[in-house]
Every structure is written in structure tokens, then in C-alpha cells.
């Protein structure tokens, strides 16, 4: 691929990434500021944006890094926080087959947002699916890295009280959740998720509820498969 071709591929893939760009610059900066407030500068936030590249995991990581060293706990907590990615992977199995050399990167960079864009958007005219997937995935990560570094750098310069800024993560999930609730066929699975989580939170407590909640959820969704599919067919 020559330079001119690359430039035109980037240009025609840009439009569907605009919302992600805005979100990642903002969220990345919020992360950089948060991490800086825990004593880790912009080099750390930039490094984490390159090797971890996961919004919610990085916010949780900022918390973990400000506590005592506990590597096994960190690994397990992040497995739980990111467990939902497993289901994005399942949804992209077909689309990512035949991607050749770029497949490992596409899999590595499958964030909630990249998944949403690639799952819903079609490649623009004259651009192969492969080039489109690579451009969107890579541009999204570049936005995130820039945001994280900028937040980390500005955080050390700005005399802003960052208390409460981590609510940006909660707000992101609430906004996405509200969007999902608009679709009627999503309401039963969504209710199962909230109900199982609240129930397990009461039974197992804040530190241990995620895994039982996920198991309960998988069980409930399996038991409810027929009625949920009947409802989905009705609303489609």
C-alpha cells in the first residue's frame, strides 16, 4: 500500500470514528488526570494506553496502582472487569476471519467503541473491509493514546480538584445502557444483568460479587433463552 492509498483509506474511514475520537480524547484525558492524581505521570498513562488500551480496565488499574502490590488480584479483577469483551469477540468471529496478518491487532484493539463502530458501520465505497477495519481500529487507539498523554500532562499543570472525575466511567456505562434500553428486545437481558448484580452485591458484598453475578446472569439468560428469543422475534 503506498502513501497516497493510505491517506485516502484514512480519510474515508474517518467519519465513523468521529464520535469515538471525541469520547476517547475526553475519557483518555480524564484517565490521565486521574492517574496523575494517584502519582503516575503522563508517561505512565501513555504507556498504559498503548499496552492495555481499555477504558474501564485503566480506570480500575489507576485504583489498583494506588494500593498495595497484589499482582494476582490485579489480574483477576481486570479479567472480571473486561469479561464482557469475550462476548464482543464472539460477535466478531465471522467478520474477523480472513483478516490475515492484521487479525491479531484487530483482536487486541477490540474495545467497546471499536466493536460498536465495526459491528454497525459498512466500509466506504472503494475501500476493502480489511483496510477499513485496520484504519478504524488504529485511529481509535491513537485518539485514546493522545487523550491519555494529554490528560496526564495537563493534570500536572492544572490546579483542578479531580475528586469525582472517575464518575465519567459510570456516566459512560449509564449512557450506553440507556441507549440499549431503547430497544425493546434488550430490556429482559438488561433487567437480568442489573437484578443479578444487585442480588449478588447484597449477598457477597462489594469485593466478591462480580463472578457470582456473571454466573447467575449466564444461567438466567440460558433458562430464559426461549422467551427472550420469542420477544426478540416479535419486536424485530
Amino acid at each position: 500500500m503506498n502513501l497516497k492509498k493510505i491517506a485516502s483509506a484514512v480519510k474515508s474511514s474517518f467519519a465513523p470514528t468521529i464520535p469515538v475520537m471525541t469520547g476517547y480524547l475526553f475519557m483518555g484525558a480524564a484517565f490521565g488526570i486521574l492517574l496523575q492524581s494517584k502519582g503516575y505521570n503522563f508517561l505512565w498513562s501513555g504507556f498504559m494506553a498503548v499496552v492495555i488500551y481499555a477504558g474501564s480496565a485503566q480506570f480500575v488499574a489507576a485504583e489498583l496502582l494506588s494500593k498495595a502490590f497484589n499482582p494476582l488480584n490485579a489480574f483477576l479483577v481486570i479479567l472480571m472487569v473486561n469479561a464482557r469483551h469475550i462476548f464482543y469477540g464472539f460477535s466478531m468471529l465471522d467478520k474477523y476471519s480472513g483478516m490475515g496478518k492484521i487479525r491479531p491487532y484487530l483482536v487486541f484493539s477490540l474495545t467497546d467503541e471499536t466493536f460498536t463502530v465495526l459491528y454497525s458501520a459498512q466500509p466506504p465505497q472503494g475501500l476493502s473491509q480489511k483496510a477499513f477495519y485496520l484504519c478504524v481500529s488504529l485511529m481509535n487507539q491513537i485518539y485514546w493514546v493522545i487523550g491519555c498523554i494529554a490528560g496526564g500532562a495537563a493534570g500536572s499543570a492544572l490546579p483542578i480538584n479531580p475528586r469525582g472525575i472517575d464518575f465519567v466511567m459510570t456516566a459512560l456505562f449509564v449512557a450506553i445502557f440507556a441507549d440499549l434500553l431503547r430497544e425493546k428486545q434488550n430490556r429482559v437481558p438488561a433487567a437480568v444483568g442489573v437484578f443479578a448484580s444487585v442480588l449478588c452485591l447484597f449477598i457477597f458484598g462489594a469485593e466478591n460479587f462480580l463472578i457470582p453475578a456473571m454466573l447467575l446472569m449466564a444461567l438466567a439468560l440460558t433458562v430464559l433463552k426461549k422467551p427472550i428469543e420469542r420477544l426478540a422475534a416479535k419486536y424485530e
Binding site: 462476548f87 448484580s197 428469543e229
Partner: peptide, 28 residues
Amino acid sequence: SGKETPAYIRYLGKVLPCAAIGMLVVYC
């Protein structure tokens, strides 16, 4: 690559994102 995904996994792929994001709100 090249293997067909079982129907049950495809079903979970459809319903789990909603449930998981609801869980994340509670987690927060």
C-alpha cells in the same frame, strides 16, 4: 477461523452485552 459458531454462543453474544453493561453500572 473457518469454524461455525454454535447457535447458543451466538445467542449469548446477542444478550450478554446488555446484561454486562447493566452489571457495570452496578459495579460502579
